[in-house]
Design a protein around this nucleic acid. Structure first.
Lengths: 330, 330
DNA sequence: TTGTAGGCGTTATCAG
DNA sequence: CTGATAACGCCTACAA
């Protein structure tokens, strides 16, 4: 590949001038500009990105840490992030942690090696103390998952306590008094918050909290199927269940159908997220809608704010709303 | 951030020696090694990636061009690629083309700017003539989508003609004689090949090919629902339908249920891919299984072969098998 | 408006 | 085994 020197040589000008044309500097005569452009054309010149990054000390690249690409929730989140990133000329380095603490920690080094200008966290595997020190090396933005103790990190928040509350209350209002809660298997402030909301609703309606109605599954439909089976073994079977994702809800509904349990008559199911699958399954799934794409957009927006401090007011926090969508599964 | 010079200074050695320690060179005395490591520790040193890339002329990064992250097929493909990439210390730059020719072309410039060592294409928006010239600048590997005219590109292939054939034959053997085919909306050699297979099967069993049974939808369940509605308006309704993805199949099945059409008795449905959704929906979807994760793994494997020519034999082509999975929807 | 020179942080070559 | 030096390709004072 040709370098800037080749272009300079061919056009009979200096490297500086070529660079100026390249970067649209104001004071270059049309004449030389033409010359340079011709030379670039002829040599099929393209600037070397590593050289630019080294020189400019920035990369226009953001690392996005994601547990699992195949979890549709994260795919949508990523797409939201990508939308805003692309609009602003940023690239995304996608980093799958696979729910692994060590991997997560390694990826944070991307900041130290200046391979990326910032990092967006969509989950947290380590405790915040572990991650905090990396703030020294560049901006970190959190979305989806969050840490209450982390005061100084810009983040996109949703009131997950409220989410758990409205889901549970909805079931209660539908006449259910024995309601299970099925959360993810991993360490998660989100899941815990929703559980708080779940309990809040129970309390409000004077319903007892019962340990045997709590399930910890991972996040997919197969886990949902397992949960259903366990449900069937309980002495006192719940008539309603609130789950951490639509995938899990779908798995439960599937097994219910296969076992002749009618949804929602015999078992009412509430999902979470409002992913496409919520509307594919029959009956469609009542769910707590998260504006997933928007969460991603806002997160990347926060990142840009930190990176380009020209936009006067640097918003450091965004709050988005959860919303119950009632469908046929309750 | 500290640089290699800082480490050199603090340890009282030269930059060369520091660099040698950094890169595990053989001939460094244990003594100095210790000194260097201490200094690095103390300064919290981390090598600058851009400088290394500039110097070494390689990036250990691969760009993966993908139409849409939220299409689960591509999410799984990407995860397959990521698995092998990670194992070998490579990073992935994820590039969404959103089915846009121009975006695709722009991403290819990553090769010219040496931002990545290679590119994996999971779809093709432009004609191959447009893309071919970029081969000069680095390796390109194709998986999933392919171009028959592209002789000289390593690729992971699946016999999509066969896929279309076995799906259609299966429906015929189930007793259907009016069979629809529903493909994606975009330009695609895959979809065309499957159509060839579809026709082959019809011919073999002396069934007529009929234009009105061909549908062009995009790729998701909502499109499937639309297709179902169109199906219902036909004078002579098909009793079997073969679709380009499990998503579309799921959409069709959903609308069938909602409209009191029994699957498979009144309408048999065959999907494609064998994605998780194929087993979530009731009835479960008969489908042509693609080893999606493996396709991704093999593609990245081919890329590594091109990049690290030490592995004597450079395999330039991988062929994987499609397989019909019979489930309750047929 | 243009050119010269120096440095961004590494690593490879060569000499010692 | 270790150190000096040049070079990777680009950008930006500074000088002209």
């Amino acid at each position: 590949m040709a370098t800037i020197s080749d272009v300079a040589r061919l056009s009979g000008l200096s490297r500086s001038t070529v660079s100026r044309v390249l970067n649209n500097y104001p004071y270059v005569s049309e004449e030389k500009k033409r010359l340079v452009n011709e030379a670039m054309e002829q040599l099929n010149y393209f600037p070397n990105a590593s050289a630019q990054k080294l020189r400019n000390q920035k990369t226009e690249t953001i690392a996005v840490l994601i547990p699992m690409l195949t979890n549709p929730f994260f795919a949508y989140l990523l797409q939201g992030i990508d939308t805003i990133a692309t609009e602003n000329g940023f690239q995304l380095l996608v980093c799958q942690t696979r729910y692994d603490k060590e991997k997560e920690l390694n990826f944070l080094n991307l900041l130290k090696s200046k391979q990326v200008d910032g990092i967006i966290l969509t989950s947290i595997e380590n405790s915040w103390d572990q991650l905090e020190p990396f703030l020294k090396y560049g901006p970190i933005v959190m979305c989806n998952e969050y840490e209450k103790t982390a005061k100084n990190v810009p983040s996109v928040r949703l009131d997950q306590v409220y989410g758990g509350y409205i889901a549970t209350r909805h079931l209660i209002e539908k006449g259910h008094s024995t309601i299970a809660y099925c959360r993810g298997a991993f360490r998660s402030g989100i899941a815990s918050d929703r559980e708080i909301g779940y309990r809040l609703a129970l309390e409000e309606f004077n319903l007892p909290y019962r340990e045997e109605l709590m399930f910890r599954a991972a996040a997919d439909s197969r886990d949902g199927e397992e949960v259903f089976k366990k449900l069937m073994t309980l002495k006192e079977r719940p008539t309603g269940i609130f789950t951490g994702s639509d995938q899990v809800a779908a798995g439960i509904i599937k097994q219910a159908k296969l076992n002749g349990i009618e949804v929602p008559k015999e078992l009412a199911v509430v999902g979470f997220d409002d992913q496409p699958i919520a509307e594919i399954v029959v009956p469609e799934i009542t769910t707590v809608k998260q504006p997933i794409h928007e969460i991603g957009e806002k997160a990347m927006g926060l990142m840009l704010n930190l990176l380009l401090p020209n936009e006067s007011d640097s918003i450091e926090e965004v709050e988005l709303q959860l919303q119950l969508i009632e469908r046929a599964s309750t």
